[in-house]
Simulated scan of single mutants.
Amino acid sequence: MQVIKRNGQITEFNPDKIYQAVLKAAKTVYVIDDKLSQDLAQVVKKVVIDLEEAHTERPTISMIQSLVEHRLLEAGYIIIAEHYIGYRLQRDLERSGYGDKIIVHLNFEQVR
């Protein structure tokens, strides 16, 4: 499967990049043990399945990002999702030239 990067470039899909991004977000708030590492790998596997089931010829990075956010929240990893989404938003600001003017901090609250 191929994906369309933000700059329009087409590249091969690499699920490990998703896993590394999720792991990086998790490391900002947790010490990563084997169980958490395996649980996050399962989240990434579900994202890959979602992509396969979507039958999109070339998904965009934004689409993949949305799936990751959804799966993290669905799995109950709210704090990891906050950090993952915050990092992605900050990178978008940096690409737009606003990274030194705006800093993203997210705090989700679960509504019951």
Rank of each mutant, 00 (worst) to 15 (best):
T28H: 01
E52T: 12
M1T: 13
V111G: 03
L106T: 02
A41G: 05
L72W: 00
G76W: 08
H105W: 12
K45P: 05
A54D: 07
V104G: 03
K46S: 12
Q110S: 11
A41R: 15
T11Q: 13
R58K: 15
V29N: 04
Q20L: 10
Y19R: 04
R88F: 13
H70Y: 09
R6L: 14
K101S: 10
L89Q: 14
R95D: 11
V43M: 07
V111Q: 12
L51D: 02
K27D: 02
I102W: 00
D33C: 02
L40Y: 06
A54C: 05
Y30P: 04
L93G: 02
A75V: 00
R58A: 10
A75G: 01
I102C: 06
Y87F: 09
V3I: 15
V104W: 02
V48K: 03
A21H: 06
Y98L: 13
F108E: 02
A81R: 05
Y98H: 06
M63Y: 15
V44E: 06
P59S: 09
H70L: 10
I61F: 11
V31R: 14
L36S: 09
Q9W: 06
E94Q: 08
A54S: 13
Y19I: 00
V48F: 00
K45S: 14
D100G: 05
R112K: 14
I102F: 07
K5E: 03
T60G: 07
H105K: 15
Q65P: 06
P15W: 05
Q42Y: 08
E82H: 02
T60F: 04
F13P: 04
S62W: 08
I61E: 15
V111D: 08
G8L: 00
M63F: 15
N7Q: 00
K35L: 12
K101E: 09
L93H: 03
Y19H: 07
L72Q: 00
D33G: 07
I18Y: 03
M63A: 13
I4A: 05
V44D: 03
T60D: 03
D50F: 03
E82W: 00
R71A: 03
F13H: 04
Q65R: 14
A21L: 06
Q2G: 07
T28R: 04
A41D: 12
R112E: 13
H55R: 14
E53I: 10
D100H: 09
V31S: 13
S66V: 13
Q38P: 02
V29W: 02
I64S: 01
H105N: 13
I80W: 00
E74L: 08
E12Q: 08
E57P: 01
T11D: 13
N14C: 07
A26S: 10
K45C: 04
G99A: 07
E53L: 15
H105F: 14
A81Y: 10
Y30K: 05
Y98R: 05
L73Q: 10
L67F: 09
V104C: 00
F108N: 03
E69T: 14
Y87H: 14
Q65S: 11
L36A: 11
K27L: 02
